Amino acid sequence: MATYRRVADSDGEATRTKSDDALNQAPSRSRGERISDKLHALAWAVSAYFIARYTQLFHTILTDERILRPVLNLSITLFSINAALISYLTIYLPCIKFRKLANTKLSACSSAFWDVYCPRVIPAMTVCGLFGSFLLVRACYPVWGFLTPLMLGWVALGAFFSLHFIPWC
């Protein structure tokens, strides 16, 4: 992973590097590109909705006896750990712990800040997410067979793309 730092000039005073400027600039995108992104996200979300509705995904996971309950419970536990870590990184650190950093150039929501302050959280989330996904597929495999990873992956991507429609500043 790349590290960023200030570079001292000949006077010994820290100056901004070109990579700092590139990190602080928002990418400019045309209106057509933004509309295309929203339409693609809408297609994923709608198709995931229809797959979940057609297969009665949530009803099946909650009530079907073929689901491997201990494996499903472990998967839910791992996803809950991920949700807690996401809340820690996005709510607790910037809003409660480091409220003073709101007016500085280093944001408590940036990945550079996370790499310095809590470097093991992102790898832990990755491991929990991967194992949780594999365990969820294993728990549901007796119901849908080899279509299980495709179906759950499609629904997960639809859920992720539905985040396009949450308004933000």
Rank of each mutant, 00 (worst) to 15 (best):
E33K: 01
A2T: 14
F161L: 14
C128N: 11
I35G: 00
T60M: 02
N73H: 15
E13L: 09
A48D: 01
F50E: 15
L157Q: 10
T126Y: 08
V71N: 00
R6D: 07
A14W: 05
T148F: 10
L157Y: 09
Q56W: 03
I81V: 05
L130P: 00
T77G: 14
R34S: 09
A14H: 08
L57H: 01
A159M: 08
V7L: 06
G153L: 00
M1F: 05
M1R: 10
C140I: 05
H164I: 01
A124H: 09
F131L: 15
S47H: 06
S107W: 01
A52N: 06
I67K: 01
D37Y: 05
S19N: 11
F79C: 06
P119W: 00
M151G: 00
L72R: 00
A48Y: 02
S110W: 04
I91R: 02
D37T: 08
F131C: 06
T55P: 02
R66N: 13
A48G: 04
F58M: 12
H40L: 14
V71C: 01
A43S: 14
A83P: 00
S75G: 07
C95V: 09
C95Y: 15
A22Q: 13
T15K: 15
W154Q: 03
L101D: 04
R16N: 05
L23F: 10
N24V: 04
D37V: 09
L136Y: 06
I35T: 10
F98W: 03
K97W: 07
T90D: 12
I35P: 04
Y141I: 08
S19L: 09
R29Y: 15
V7D: 12
S10T: 15
T77Q: 10
V116R: 11
G32W: 01
S111K: 05
L89S: 13
T17V: 05
F146G: 15
F79P: 05
D9H: 10
I86Q: 11
A108Q: 01
V46R: 04
W168M: 13
T63P: 02
R120G: 03
Y4C: 08
P119G: 06
A156D: 07
L150Y: 11
T3V: 08
S110P: 09
V143F: 11
G145A: 03
T60Q: 00
K18L: 15
S80C: 04
A14M: 12
R69D: 01
N24E: 12
I76A: 10
F131G: 07
D115R: 12
L93G: 11
T104M: 15
S30E: 00
C140M: 03
D11S: 13
F160E: 08
T60F: 05
A159V: 06
P149D: 04
V121T: 08
R6Q: 06
T126G: 12
C140W: 01
T60D: 02
I67S: 04
A84W: 05
K18N: 14
